[in-house]
Nucleic acid binder design. Structure first.
Lengths: 232, 232
DNA sequence: CGGTATATTGAGTGTCTTCAATCTCAGTGG
DNA sequence: CCACTGAGATTGAAGACACTCAATATACCG
């Protein structure tokens, strides 16, 4: 049997991940202690409020990371794709998960137990540093989003999100956004009602800035979208 | 001359700070390399977009940390008070500051050069870990605020902010909030227009939930405020 | 006692939400 | 092959919420 893909050394995501600067020896060690699992769309990796025993490194597929409001409405905070890790916040702080991680596109994901994470942080200061940098980057993104969501209109934020989706997940051969989200999910990123997203998408379509075909979205005029998202 | 207060060992904020679990030897080392400065209300420690050469540890006073929108409107992200450090994100990631730090109440602040921070992260994994935990905590708060600002009404967020201000900064002998903010600043936390804050404060006053006396605010009915901020 | 900054109030307006109805489309079973 | 079903998408109408702009009041500072 071919277990090649199970080895961290050969992991297709390793070059994008914080594990990329670990030596062969360390990767070997992770190999011995991690487990790899396949997940289907809709599967929950962990749920807000629950304790988790390690963190997750995405090998393939996409996760959405969200918080749930008291009325049950979800607010999508971020996505995780190849090379991203998630759950480390709860591991490092030894606290219950503060977000829910749900599979958006079928995924192959490695689970790395807490004690492994801790031991690497302790013995490898470069690893600790790059983990900090990941956290800092997320923190900066979160702070920017607070500003945007507080100051921008829904139309501006929607434009911003569309650009982000193209940047982060790319487009297919015909130029349509690769990632496939429902209107409800889109609204849960933008932070608005589903109907508002639908109306504004329809506006953008009429302005020939985007194009829609069976729920898929194509950005026709990136510059104009940028102008909308940054009206100054 | 009495330089006692200049020594980290005797720093009144050290017990609250991430430096609290450093040994006497390490604190001595920081002493040799830090500088301590006094700042006045309105002073800017660092400005969004600028490079900074180290991070700042608050010994006394209060800072507001904010981002500036393209139209110039500021969005307050957090505060820093005794024991808090700020600027470490830019130091660790070696990037320009992504926020502005401005003195809200006259402050005494230690400056710790980048290389000191790096050397401690490298040689003291517990320090690295507690720095990570600080970052993670901030990240969690930021994510929560994204959810709130996206899903809650201004009234709900205002109630939440008032409770936060009492929790974080306490109240004076007569029960008024210790921290003194202009209506504009309050609106820049809540993420709304100044006039909206004024109107909603006035509503809360009429409902006997808060009391106002010459711009100072006193929370009369904490429970009711909690209900408002968490209507479910 | 000006003069400036901040706070307050009012009126008008626009954005966005809510609710309800309808439509589309893919999958399913007869 | 087609009707049936359910999930998601769309549209319309009504109204709430919050913003802007302008005018006024109050407080603070030298």
């Amino acid at each position: 049997m071919d277990e090649g893909i199970h080895y961290c050394k050969g992991c297709s995501s390793s070059k994008n991940s914080i594990f990329s600067n670990l030596g062969a020896e360390d990767l070997e060690y992770i190999d011995q202690n991690k487990s790899i699992n396949l997940y289907k769309k809709g599967d929950i990796l962990y749920r807000e409020g629950n304790r988790i025993l390690g963190c997750y490194c995405v090998n393939s597929g996409i996760l959405k990371i969200y918080k749930t409001g008291l009325d049950g409405k979800e607010q999508i905070i971020s996505f995780a794709q190849k090379g991203d890790i998630t759950g480390y916040r709860s591991v490092l702080s030894n606290e219950p998960a503060c977000t829910t991680a749900e599979v958006l596109e079928d995924a192959s994901i490695c689970f790395i137990p807490s004690n492994i994470m801790f031991s690497f942080v302790k013995k490898n200061s470069d690893f600790a540093l790059s983990l900090m940098q990941v956290t800092c980057k997320e923190l900066n993104q979160a702070n920017s989003y607070i500003k945007d969501i507080a100051q921008k209109t829904v139309r501006e934020r929607l434009a911003e999100v569309l650009l982000m989706l193209e940047d982060n997940f790319g487009k297919d051969a015909e130029g349509f956004l690769t990632i496939s989200l429902t209107r409800a999910e889109l609204s849960n990123i933008v932070g608005t009602a589903t109907e508002s997203v639908i109306r504004l998408l329809s506006d953008l379509k009429n302005e020939n800035i985007i194009l829609m075909s069976s729920k898929k979205i194509k950005i026709l005029n990136k510059n104009e979208l940028k102008k909308i998202s940054n009206p100054f």
